[in-house]
Protein backbone atom coordinates (compact mmCIF):
# COMPACT_ATOMS: atom_id res chain seq x y z
CA UNK A 1 0.00 0.00 0.00
CA UNK A 2 1.34 3.40 -0.92
CA UNK A 3 2.12 6.04 1.65
CA UNK A 4 -0.63 8.23 0.27
CA UNK A 5 -3.22 5.53 0.58
CA UNK A 6 -2.31 4.60 4.11
CA UNK A 7 -2.40 8.25 5.11
CA UNK A 8 -5.87 8.61 3.61
CA UNK A 9 -7.02 5.51 5.41
CA UNK A 10 -5.65 6.82 8.66
CA UNK A 11 -7.47 10.13 8.31
CA UNK A 12 -10.70 8.46 7.32
CA UNK A 13 -10.34 6.06 10.23
CA UNK A 14 -9.95 8.95 12.66
CA UNK A 15 -12.95 10.70 11.15
CA UNK A 16 -14.93 7.49 11.39
CA UNK A 17 -14.18 7.03 15.05
CA UNK A 18 -14.99 10.63 15.88
CA UNK A 19 -18.27 10.39 13.99
CA UNK A 20 -19.01 7.13 15.76
CA UNK A 21 -18.32 8.78 19.08
CA UNK A 22 -20.53 11.72 18.16
CA UNK A 23 -23.39 9.41 17.31
CA UNK A 24 -22.80 7.47 20.50
CA UNK A 25 -22.89 10.78 22.34
CA UNK A 26 -26.17 11.72 20.73
CA UNK A 27 -27.60 8.33 21.65
CA UNK A 28 -26.36 8.60 25.21
CA UNK A 29 -27.64 12.10 25.62
CA UNK A 30 -31.03 11.37 24.14
CA UNK A 31 -31.40 8.20 26.15
CA UNK A 32 -31.50 10.33 29.27
CA UNK A 33 -34.53 11.91 27.67
CA UNK A 34 -35.96 8.95 25.79
CA UNK A 35 -38.60 6.58 27.00
CA UNK A 36 -40.71 3.78 25.68
CA UNK A 37 -43.47 6.38 25.76
CA UNK A 38 -45.05 6.94 22.41
CA UNK A 39 -46.98 10.06 21.57
CA UNK A 40 -50.22 10.74 19.80
CA UNK A 41 -52.05 13.89 18.83
CA UNK A 42 -55.24 14.80 20.60
CA UNK A 43 -57.63 17.71 20.97
CA UNK A 44 -58.10 19.34 24.32
CA UNK A 45 -61.87 19.85 24.22
CA UNK A 46 -61.65 22.65 26.78
CA UNK A 47 -59.45 24.66 24.49
CA UNK A 48 -61.10 23.93 21.17
CA UNK A 49 -63.14 26.85 19.93
CA UNK A 50 -64.98 24.89 17.22
CA UNK A 51 -63.44 26.85 14.41
CA UNK A 52 -64.05 24.17 11.82
CA UNK A 53 -60.48 23.79 10.61
CA UNK A 54 -60.36 20.23 11.89
CA UNK A 55 -62.62 19.23 9.03
CA UNK A 56 -60.49 20.85 6.37
CA UNK A 57 -56.86 20.63 7.48
CA UNK A 58 -56.32 16.98 8.35
CA UNK A 59 -54.08 15.18 5.88
CA UNK A 60 -56.82 12.61 5.59
CA UNK A 61 -60.04 13.22 3.77
CA UNK A 62 -62.47 12.91 5.50
CA UNK A 63 -60.68 14.12 8.57
CA UNK A 64 -59.50 11.83 11.37
CA UNK A 65 -61.23 14.22 13.72
CA UNK A 66 -64.75 13.20 14.66
CA UNK A 67 -67.31 14.39 17.05
CA UNK A 68 -67.67 12.25 20.17
CA UNK A 69 -70.42 12.26 22.69
CA UNK A 70 -69.65 12.37 26.38
CA UNK A 71 -73.03 10.83 27.27
CA UNK A 72 -72.47 11.35 30.97
CA UNK A 73 -72.64 15.09 30.47
CA UNK A 74 -75.60 15.10 28.13
CA UNK A 75 -79.00 16.41 29.19
CA UNK A 76 -80.73 14.17 26.64
CA UNK A 77 -82.67 17.25 25.62
CA UNK A 78 -85.49 17.17 23.16
CA UNK A 79 -84.52 20.64 22.00
CA UNK A 80 -80.88 19.79 21.26
CA UNK A 81 -78.68 22.70 20.24
CA UNK A 82 -76.24 20.31 18.63
CA UNK A 83 -78.82 18.40 16.65
CA UNK A 84 -81.30 20.99 15.49
CA UNK A 85 -80.64 23.87 13.22
CA UNK A 86 -81.38 27.28 14.63
CA UNK A 87 -84.75 28.14 13.12
CA UNK A 88 -85.70 24.51 12.51
CA UNK A 89 -89.23 23.93 11.38
CA UNK A 90 -90.01 20.88 13.45
CA UNK A 91 -88.26 18.94 16.19
CA UNK A 92 -87.82 15.78 14.21
CA UNK A 93 -85.30 13.86 12.17
CA UNK A 94 -86.11 15.52 8.86
CA UNK A 95 -82.90 16.51 7.13
CA UNK A 96 -83.86 20.15 6.79
CA UNK A 97 -84.03 20.47 10.57
CA UNK A 98 -80.62 18.99 11.21
CA UNK A 99 -77.60 21.11 11.96
CA UNK A 100 -75.13 18.46 10.88
CA UNK A 101 -74.30 18.86 7.19
CA UNK A 102 -73.90 15.13 6.74
CA UNK A 103 -76.75 13.99 8.99
CA UNK A 104 -74.25 12.12 11.11
CA UNK A 105 -76.13 12.50 14.37
CA UNK A 106 -78.68 9.84 15.12
CA UNK A 107 -81.51 10.83 17.43
CA UNK A 108 -83.30 8.15 19.37
CA UNK A 109 -86.15 8.47 21.86
CA UNK A 110 -85.23 6.81 25.14
CA UNK A 111 -88.30 7.84 27.10
CA UNK A 112 -90.33 11.04 27.08
CA UNK A 113 -88.85 13.62 27.04
CA UNK A 114 -85.32 12.24 26.72
CA UNK A 115 -83.48 11.65 23.49
CA UNK A 116 -80.13 9.97 23.00
CA UNK A 117 -77.80 11.42 20.40
CA UNK A 118 -75.31 9.14 18.77
CA UNK A 119 -72.64 10.13 16.26
CA UNK A 120 -72.33 7.98 13.20
CA UNK A 121 -68.59 8.10 12.79
CA UNK A 122 -68.69 7.01 9.18
CA UNK A 123 -70.58 10.15 8.26
CA UNK A 124 -69.05 12.71 10.61
CA UNK A 125 -66.49 14.99 9.01
CA UNK A 126 -65.45 16.79 12.18
CA UNK A 127 -66.82 20.17 11.16
CA UNK A 128 -67.66 21.12 14.77
CA UNK A 129 -71.00 22.68 13.86
CA UNK A 130 -72.83 20.48 16.34
CA UNK A 131 -70.12 21.08 18.93
CA UNK A 132 -70.64 24.79 18.60
CA UNK A 133 -74.40 24.33 18.91
CA UNK A 134 -74.13 22.04 21.91
CA UNK A 135 -71.61 24.32 23.64
CA UNK A 136 -73.66 27.45 23.10
CA UNK A 137 -77.10 26.09 23.95
CA UNK A 138 -76.51 22.82 25.76
CA UNK A 139 -74.15 21.10 28.16
CA UNK A 140 -71.19 20.86 25.82
CA UNK A 141 -71.26 17.09 25.82
CA UNK A 142 -70.56 16.89 22.10
CA UNK A 143 -66.92 17.61 21.38
CA UNK A 144 -64.22 16.80 18.90
CA UNK A 145 -61.57 14.14 19.29
CA UNK A 146 -58.96 12.73 16.98
CA UNK A 147 -59.98 9.14 16.36
CA UNK A 148 -56.79 7.25 16.97
CA UNK A 149 -57.84 4.27 14.90
CA UNK A 150 -58.08 6.55 11.85
CA UNK A 151 -55.34 9.10 12.51
CA UNK A 152 -52.04 8.24 10.86
CA UNK A 153 -50.21 10.06 13.64
CA UNK A 154 -48.32 12.49 11.45
CA UNK A 155 -44.99 13.50 12.82
CA UNK A 156 -46.52 16.91 12.98
CA UNK A 157 -50.28 17.12 12.95
CA UNK A 158 -51.34 19.36 10.09
CA UNK A 159 -54.28 20.65 12.10
CA UNK A 160 -52.19 21.51 15.15
CA UNK A 161 -50.31 23.92 12.95
CA UNK A 162 -53.41 25.88 12.03
CA UNK A 163 -55.56 25.47 15.12
CA UNK A 164 -56.20 29.03 16.31
CA UNK A 165 -56.68 27.91 19.91
CA UNK A 166 -53.61 25.74 20.39
CA UNK A 167 -55.97 22.93 21.24
CA UNK A 168 -54.10 20.07 19.58
CA UNK A 169 -51.24 18.61 21.53
CA UNK A 170 -49.10 15.53 21.79
CA UNK A 171 -50.28 13.25 24.55
CA UNK A 172 -48.81 10.00 25.88
CA UNK A 173 -50.14 7.07 23.88
CA UNK A 174 -51.34 5.00 26.82
CA UNK A 175 -54.27 7.38 27.38
CA UNK A 176 -55.10 8.27 23.82
CA UNK A 177 -58.31 10.29 24.42
CA UNK A 178 -59.28 13.42 26.28
CA UNK A 179 -62.98 12.78 26.64
CA UNK A 180 -64.85 15.49 28.46
CA UNK A 181 -65.84 14.56 31.94
CA UNK A 182 -63.02 12.07 32.08
CA UNK A 183 -60.50 14.58 33.28
CA UNK A 184 -60.68 17.80 35.14
CA UNK A 185 -60.27 21.17 33.66
CA UNK A 186 -57.07 22.77 34.78
CA UNK A 187 -55.13 19.54 34.56
CA UNK A 188 -54.65 20.03 30.90
CA UNK A 189 -51.92 22.32 29.78
Amino acid sequence: MSKLQSRRQFISGCARYSLGLTIAGVIGFSLTNASSQQWLWQIDPFKCTNCGRCATHCVLNPSAVKCVHAYALCGYCDLCGGYLKPGHIARNTAAENQLCPTAAIERKLIEEPYYEYHINEELCIGCAKCVEGCSSFGNGSLHLQIRQNICVNCNECAIARVCPSDAIKRIPADEPYLIKGGFEHGQTL
Binding site: W39, A160, R161, D166, K169, I171, E175, F183, Q187, T188
Partner: peptide, 18 residues
Protein backbone atom coordinates in the same frame (compact mmCIF):
# COMPACT_ATOMS: atom_id res chain seq x y z
CA UNK B 1 -46.26 24.39 15.81
CA UNK B 2 -44.99 21.73 18.01
CA UNK B 3 -47.29 21.23 20.89
CA UNK B 4 -47.49 18.75 23.61
CA UNK B 5 -48.92 17.96 26.94
CA UNK B 6 -46.52 18.58 29.76
CA UNK B 7 -48.15 16.10 32.03
CA UNK B 8 -49.66 12.72 31.80
CA UNK B 9 -53.39 13.06 32.30
CA UNK B 10 -55.01 10.12 34.02
CA UNK B 11 -58.64 9.41 33.23
CA UNK B 12 -60.82 9.34 36.24
CA UNK B 13 -63.14 6.64 37.36
CA UNK B 14 -66.31 7.05 35.39
CA UNK B 15 -68.65 6.71 38.33
CA UNK B 16 -67.24 9.92 39.60
CA UNK B 17 -67.64 11.83 36.42
CA UNK B 18 -70.79 13.57 37.42
Amino acid sequence: MVRLYKKHIPLKNHNNIF
